[in-house]
Design a protein around this nucleic acid. Structure first.
Length: 414
DNA sequence: TCTGGGGTCCTAGGACCC
DNA sequence: TCTGGGGTCCTAGGACCC
């Protein structure tokens, strides 16, 4: 199951008058086009195109432009997934807009799937496509075909080997799930053009050139499942908060604000999955697109004395790392904090000589989390996170958080 | 003025262990 | 002439995904 043009569809749920009109959603900082309605695709707008290059074009064609609103999309995603769960207990949430479902004992597959589509649409307003196959890789191919299916819109089923091979012959190998740029280059060089060609290559060659990952794809295309469904969301093994700034900054103070803020976000994400981090990385870099600027690209990684998910501790160590890589000679465009070496928070090995004031700190964090949840993010925060807006994101076309904030709930006027 | 963010998995090679 | 065998763990880098 794959939501159609997901971010655009989310925006349209609350702006139904945009149905049938070209709509795009931009990446953070209003940088690139990352979601397009059918009408926007028809106009020739490409995925990941920088928005500033298309500014006039967008205006001329009256394209409706939105900044990305991940709070909204995340919540809408959860609603879609909740509805899907009505139909099967065996389901994997693969990404914000995709899920794999196992459907067994289904007499009329077409009817069942249409029922799923209708229920999701009625409950959430999100249109979805569903492709069916014996393996995940085949289901992904079916899903692509489903999007163009005229007879059963948004629905396609691969149900026998003859039909499967016919489809594989008509599928370019680079369209396959798991085949990226590099492998496409390699395959083209070896005259492997279609997915069917790929299934005819001997296993040793694939194993040698594309590792076991390539081999799995081949098996999956032949109907042998090699990628089991992950029924529950595994804990993350790394967590990152990285952002490009609204404008270039040079000041150490502002960089501190940004880095401390990103460290705080990482601590929030860690607490959400009850993990602690044992390694922290901080990086800063200049604007790679500006060839006239002197370029600078530096990162610092170190192990924390004791694993933690405290905002105070992570911000503290992030600033120490920043201090070591900051140079006053550059204008910076982006910074990030990545935490690694994650483990469950109840398995922390404390230091033998550590003065353990964690209990106290955890109470502080619990209290501030509660306050911030009630009154809004960062109502209470570390002073070093600052009050300036110098480095914040550009989000000129942000829609409301209709489903998660009472203040922004949609209004129906008489 | 202006080009995103956040992840996973695999492999090879080095260090180390008994 | 000639120098074992069998492992684990960690890291960096590559490839890929949405």
């Amino acid at each position: 199951m794959d939501c159609n043009n997901f971010y655009v569809s989310c925006e349209r749920v609350f702006r139904p008058e945009l149905e049938g009109k070209p709509v795009v959603v931009l990446s953070n900082n209003d940088g690139c086009i990352i979601s397009r309605s059918e009408e926007a695709k028809q106009l020739g707008l490409k995925m990941a195109e920088p928005a500033f290059l298309k500014k006039d074009f967008l205006k001329r064609h009256k394209v409706h432009v939105f900044s990305s609103n991940y709070t909204l999309y995340g919540d809408m995603s959860q609603r879609v997934m909740d509805v899907l769960r009505i139909f099967t207990t065996e389901m994997e949430i693969y990404s914000i807009d995709e899920a794999f479902l196992i459907l067994t004992n289904t007499n009329n597959l077409y009817a069942t799937i249409q029922k799923i589509q209708q229920t999701v649409f009625k409950s959430t307003g999100i249109p979805v496509s569903i492709g069916v196959g014996k393996t995940k890789s085949l289901a992904k191919i079916a899903n692509k075909i489903a999007k163009k299916n005229k007879v059963y819109p948004g629905l396609f089923i691969i149900n026998n080997t003859q039909q499967r091979d016919c489809i594989l012959r008509n599928t370019h190998v680079e369209k396959l799930w798991g085949i990226g740029r590099q492998h496409h280059k390699l395959l083209r060089k070896n005259n492997i053009i279609t997915a069917y060609n790929f299934t005819q290559i001997n296993n040793q060659w694939i194993r040698k050139k594309m590792s076991v990952v390539g081999l799995r794809i081949k098996q999956e295309l032949l109907g042998v499942s090699c990628m089991p469904i992950e029924l529950c969301l595994p804990d993350k093994k790394a967590i990152a908060t990285t952002r490009a700034f609204g404008k270039k900054i040079n000041s150490y103070t502002y960089l501190c604000e940004a880095v401390a803020t990103y460290a705080t976000r990482c601590s929030e994400k860690l607490r959400k999955q009850s993990s602690v981090a044992s390694i922290i990385t901080v990086f800063i870099h200049t604007d790679p697109f500006n060839s006239r600027d002197k370029q600078y690209n530096k990162s610092k990684t170190f192990a924390l004395p004791v694993p933690t998910n405290s905002n105070y501790q992570l911000a503290h160590y992030a600033i120490i790392a920043l201090k070591q890589i900051y140079s006053i000679d550059y204008y910076y465009k982006k910074a990030g904090v990545i935490v690694d070496g994650l483990m469950p928070e109840n398995e922390i090995q404390y230091g033998f000589f550590e003065v353990n004031n964690r209990v106290k700190w955890n109470m502080v964090i619990k209290a501030t989390d509660k306050i911030n949840k009630k009154y809004g993010r960062d109502k209470i925060k570390l002073a070093i996170m600052g009050m300036s807006n110098k480095w914040k994101l550009r989000q000129k076309k942000l829609s409301g958080r209709y489903t998660t904030n009472w203040d922004e709930i949609i209004q129906v006027l008489k």
